[in-house]
Design a protein around this nucleic acid. Structure first.
Lengths: 225, 225, 225, 225
DNA sequence: AATGAATGAGTATTCATTCAT
DNA sequence: CATGAATGAATACTCATTCAT
C-alpha cells in the first residue's frame, strides 16, 4: 500500500513487445501524474491533492491531467483501483501460501493487511478512512467493501474446513476490517510516533482470531435501551 | 446520540441562583443554534451544516452565531463535547446498572453504544465517521478516542475482576470500537434499509465479547512481509 | 433600450413607504451590479460581461453578485426581463397614443422600436442578436418572441379595423422584426458611423408598412428547387 | 447550403494540367477537413465544431489541420467563403433563368435562398445566425452582407427595368434578408417540427415582394421619440 | 446586542494551439 | 511530412467570516 513502490500486482504491460517511443512517453506522463497524486495524498490527504498541485508535482501542465483522466475523481478512482488490485492480490497470495489450516490463513490475511497498511502510512490512512467529494468517497467505500468481501471469502473457506465456527461471515468480515482499521488508525495518521509494527500486528491478529474463532457465545441476550 | 433530545448528561450547570432574563435569552439562543446545527448534520452531514443554514434554522442572524462561537469549527467542537458527555454517561450508566459480571458489563457497554448509535442514525454516522475540515476532524478523532478510553476502562474493570483474560486493553478497546463502527456504518448511512436492530446488536455484542474473552491465543506467530 | 437610463417602466417600488436604510443599501448594490452588467454588455457584448469584471465595475465583491443572482445567466435573464418590460411598454404606449388608423399605429410601433433600439446601440445589438451560453440565449429568443407577439397584436388590431389586409400575422410579425433587426444591425454594431437615424427610421417604417399593407399578392407560385 | 454536397460553385480551379499525386493527396486531406467541419457544424453548431473533433472526423491529426489552416477561425472563414460562392451562384442562376420580369426574378431569388436554407437546416442556421468567436463572427456578417449585396443587385435590375418602384435598394435588400432570416430561423433550428416548406417559402416570397413592390408609401411621416 | 449584506480567496475544468518525434 | 501529447490561460461559483448599521 505504498505509493512509491510497484510490486507484485504492478501491471506488466500485457503486450510482450515494446511500445513505440511516443506510447512510452505517454505512459510515463500518465504514471508521473499518478505518482504525483499518490505522493500528495500521502503527504496531505485528498484535500492536499489539488489538480494544480498534482500537475506541478508531476511536472506537467494541468491540461495534461485531463488528457489522461476525465476528472479529478476519475484520477483518484484509478488510484483506488490500482491499490485495490495490488493489495487484494497480496492478501490472497499470503493466504494461498499458507497451508497450516484456517486459523493460519486468517492470521496471514490479517497480518498482510496490517503490515502493508502500516507501510503505506498516511497514504493508506487516506485511502481507508478519509472522506472527500462524494464521487471519490464512493471508491473508498468500494475499496473497503473489497476487503470485506476478501475477508469473508477467507472466513467462508475456514468454515468449510470446519476449523472455525459457523457464523455470519459478512458481519464477521466487517468486524475484522473494523478491528484492523481502528487499531491502525492512530499509527497510520501519526508518522512521527514510531510504533513497534511487529508487536502491533501480532496483537491485531490475535484480536481478529479471537473474534472469529469463538464458539458458543450466541446465547447472550441483549435488551435494547 | 439523537440530535433532538437532551438527556442524562445534558445537565444545566447547577448554578444555584437564577439567571437574569438576558442571560436566559442568551442561553436559549445558544441552544437553538446548537440544535439547528445538530438537525442539519442529521439531515445532510457536515457538508449540509453551513453557517448560513444553521442561522436560518435557528432563527438568528449569521453574525449572532459568531457571538456565541468563535468559528464554525468551535460550534461543532461543542456539539462533539456535548454528545460525548451524554453518550459516555449512558454507556457508563449501563455498565453501572449491571452486576452480573464482567462479560455482562462489556455486553451492556457495547449494546448501549450500538443501540444509541443506531437511534442516532445519520447524525451518529456523521459524528463517528464523516470527515470535515481538519479543525473539526480533530474533534471527531477525540470523540472516538473517548470511546476508546471508556471501553478500556470497562475492560480494565473486567480484568481486575478476573473474568476476562489479561490483555492490552487500549488496543482491545480500539478493536471493539472498530467492530462496532464498521458493522454499523452501513445501517447508519442507509436510513431506508430497515435493519433489525435487535438482531444486529446481538451479533455485534457477540463479536465483541469473543474478541476480548478469548484465552490463550497469544502464541500465534506472525512474520511480517 | 439604453442601459443607463430608467424610464416609463422602471419599477417604482410597489410599497409606498420608505425602505429601511439596509434595504435601500441592498437595492443599491443590486442596481449597481445590474448597471455594471449593462455597461459591460454595451461595451463588449456578453463575452465581455464576465462575472469578475462586473464585480469590479460595480465596486462589489464577486460573492455579492451571487447574493443577488443565483447565476450569471440569471443576472442576464433579469436584464432581459427588465428591458423587455420597459421596451414593450414603450411600443404599446406609442400605439395607444395613435388614433389615426391601423397604418399609423403600425408605423408608431415600428418607429418606436427602431428609435429606441438605435439609442440602445451596442447594448440593443447584444440583446437582440448576440448569442451566448444556451441558458442566456434562451432569454434572447424569448425577448425576440415578445416583440413578435407584440407586433402580431398590433397587426391583428389593424386587420380587425379592416385597414390592413387579412394575413398570417404571426409570420408577418416575424417579417417586421426581421426587417427592423437586419436594417438596424449595422448601425447598432458600429457606434462610429453616424447614421441619420430619422431618415433610417422613416425608411424602415415604410418598408414595414409595405410588407403588411400589400394586397393580392398571394397568387405568386413558387416551384422549389 | 448542404454541408455534404459540392455543386455549382464548388468548381475545382481549372488548372489544365494534372496535379502530382502528393498535391492531390494534400487537396484531399484539406477537403476532408472542411467536410468534417461542415458536418460537425451541421450537427452541433459552432460550439460542436472543436478542432480535435474535426480532426477525428476527418481522420487526420490535429496538427495537420494547422498545416492547412492557420487557425480555427481561418478554417471557418474558408467554409464561409465556399458556401457563399456556391449559394450566391445558385441565387444568381435562378435569377438568370427567369425572364418573366422583375417581380419573378425577385421571387426566384428569394425562393432559392429560402429553399436552399431550409435544405441546409442546422448548418444554414449556424452560418446565418450563430455567433462564435469575434474572428469567426466577422465572416458571418460578411456572409450576410454578401446576400445583401446580391439582393440589392437583383433589386437594382428591377428598378432599371422600371418594374419595381425606385427605392434605397441597400436598405430594401437588408429588409429582404431580415424577412427571410427571421421567418426561417425557427424552422431552421427545429429539425423535428415538420414544416411545410413549400407553403412557407410562398409566404416569405409574398412578404418580400410586398416589401419591395409597394408604391407611394414614402409620405408617411414619423416623429422620433 | 443583533443583524445580514458584503466579502474574496480558492479550484476544477476546457480547448485552441504548438512542437518534438 | 504528419502526428497527437502536452500546454496553460481563462472563468464561474462557494461559503466561512466580518463589520457597519
Amino acid at each position: 500500500m505504498q505509493p512509491q513502490q510497484s510490486d507484485v500486482a504492478a501491471a506488466q504491460p500485457a503486450l510482450p513487445e515494446k511500445l513505440t517511443a511516443a506510447q512510452a512517453r505517454r505512459v510515463a506522463t500518465r504514471d508521473s501524474i499518478l505518482a504525483a497524486a499518490r505522493e500528495l495524498i500521502a503527504e496531505d490527504g485528498f484535500a492536499g491533492a489539488q489538480v494544480s498541485l498534482i500537475a506541478v508535482r508531476a511536472g506537467v501542465g494541468v491540461g495534461s491531467i485531463y488528457k489522461h483522466f476525465s476528472s479529478r475523481a476519475e484520477l483518484f478512482a484509478e488510484i483506488y483501483r490500482d491499490v485495490a488490485a495490488r493489495e487484494f492480490a497480496h492478501v490472497q497470495a499470503a493466504v494461498a501460501q499458507t497451508d497450516d489450516g484456517a486459523g493460519a490463513r486468517i492470521a496471514a490475511a490479517v497480518a498482510t493487511f496490517c503490515a502493508r497498511a502500516l507501510r503505506g502510512g498516511r497514504f493508506a490512512y487516506a485511502l481507508l478512512v478519509e472522506h472527500s467529494e462524494p464521487d471519490v468517497d464512493e471508491h473508498r467505500l468500494a475499496f473497503r467493501e473489497g476487503y470485506r468481501t476478501l475477508f469473508r471469502e477467507v472466513l467462508d473457506q475456514g468454515i468449510d474446513d470446519g476449523e472455525i465456527p459457523d457464523q455470519d461471515t459478512d458481519t464477521a468480515a466487517a468486524a475484522l476490517l473494523g478491528i484492523m482499521t481502528e487499531t491502525l488508525v492512530r499509527p497510520l495518521a501519526d508518522l512521527d510516533e514510531k510504533t513497534n509494527s511487529q508487536a502491533l500486528i501480532r496483537q491485531v491478529v490475535n484480536l481478529c482470531l479471537a473474534t472469529v474463532q469463538a464458539r458458543g457465545l450466541n446465547q447472550t441476550d441483549v435488551d435494547g435501551p
